[in-house]
């Protein structure tokens, strides 16, 4: 078994709701409400869920782009484990190079006034590579790594297509040889024909550089192609964590089952027995009591309305937070075709 690079323990992030002239705190949005998981070195863990489930907030807490309300974020680097949640800005600074981010929108995440070489070289410059020739050499190396022609080094981002821009963003994230890449919806703004190129690139780079990737996404089809393991979130809580194949073929949480069933497959006539969830995603400012999913769950009982399920390891490597997981036999993707 591979070693753990990142361990998130009971992470909470509440945002205050302020009201009135005095901006008094009138309530809390529980964007992340007690989430635990770990990422092994060299794997891709996908964090999936629908909008408002807290997946992006989790990733931003890990990068300390947001401070945390409660919980631990243990990051192991060079044999030492540190809790990122408790560090000061000054303590974080030398660690930041080990965690890099790939953004969703390649149109807004690249400075339009910088040429490609400067965009990719900026992290190098900031981290002390002041020799111009050395920097240029590294930038060219990175461009080759992401399959961008070296001739483009002096071009501005506007001259590139979405897919090429995302390659620039990936090269910039790789510049400092990070241990962890957090990729937040890296392909959802791209056209399908380009999406496949970027997904393949990520798979390649991971094999070559032994990268660890936290892949934040809403699209279960995309996730199937990149993830080793999948963690599913719903309204600020983790509902299920499992190996990719196990999660897709035999989900243990009713929400995972519904998500899989809702994913449109490019096969005509595949939808005869689709599960259509009723109602809407719960409001994280005012989550329902008990299991947050119970108002939409077709298996919910009285108990689900009162008791909040905690996540437990129910089989080796399989975690689920559902009171009834062992009574239900849920449908995986095999049932859809």
């Amino acid at each position: 078994m591979s070693e753990t690079l990142l361990e998130v323990r009971d992470l909470k992030k509440y945002f205050p709701i302020r009201k009135g002239l005095l901006r008094r705190v009138a309530g809390q949005v529980r964007a992340v409400d007690g989430v635990s998981f770990m990422v092994r070195k060299g794997e891709t863990l996908a964090l999936v869920g629908e909008s408002g489930c807290g997946k992006t907030t989790v990733s931003r807490c890990i990068l300390r782009a947001l401070s945390t309300t409660e919980g631990e974020i243990n990051f192991t680097i060079g044999g030492k484990t540190v809790d990122l949640a408790k560090m000061t800005r000054a303590q974080l600074r030398p660690l930041r190079r080990h965690m890099q981010m790939v953004f969703q929108d390649p149109y807004s995440s690249l400075n339009p006034r910088m040429v490609v070489g400067d965009i990719i070289g900026e992290p190098l410059l900031i981290n002390g590579m002041s020799n111009r020739a050395e920097r240029r050499r590294r930038v060219l190396e990175l461009m080759e790594l992401v399959q961008l022609p070296a001739a483009y080094i002096n071009r501005f981002p506007h001259a590139f297509s979405g897919g090429q821009r995302q390659r620039i963003g990936i090269a910039r994230a790789l510049a400092l040889n990070p241990e962890l890449i957090v990729a937040d919806e890296p392909v959802s703004a791209l056209d399908v024909s380009v999406q496949a190129q970027i997904l393949n690139l990520l798979l390649d780079l991971q094999d070559r550089l032994r990268l660890t990737i936290l892949f934040v996404a809403h699209d279960l089809s995309v996730v199937k192609h990149v993830a080793d393991r999948v963690a599913v979130m719903y309204v600020g809580r983790m509902v299920e964590v499992a190996e990719t194949e196990a999660l897709y073929s035999r989900p243990l949480h009713p929400y995972t089952e519904a998500l899989l069933s809702a994913a449109p497959a490019p096969v005509p006539d595949a939808i005869s027995n689709r599960i259509i969830l009723e109602r809407e995603i719960a409001d994280p400012a005012n989550p329902p009591p008990g299991c947050a999913f119970h108002p939409r769950c077709r298996y919910a009982t009285e108990r689900c309305k009162q008791e909040r399920p905690e996540m437990a390891e129910v089989e080796p490597g399989r975690y689920v937070a559902c009171l009834r997981w062992d009574e239900l036999s849920l449908r995986g993707i095999a049932a859809m075709t």
């Binding site: 190129q197 089809s221 995309v222 080793d228 990719t244 490019p266 993707i333």
Partner: peptide, 25 residues
């Protein structure tokens, strides 16, 4: 044909490479 092959699907094998369309629009 190329477009259909390049679509990610939940039915794929985990971590399987997708056939791509060269270049961009």
């Amino acid at each position: 044909r190329a477009l259909l092959r390049s679509i990610p699907t939940v039915l794929a094998k985990p971590r399987s490479r997708l056939p791509t369309i060269e270049g961009s629009i």
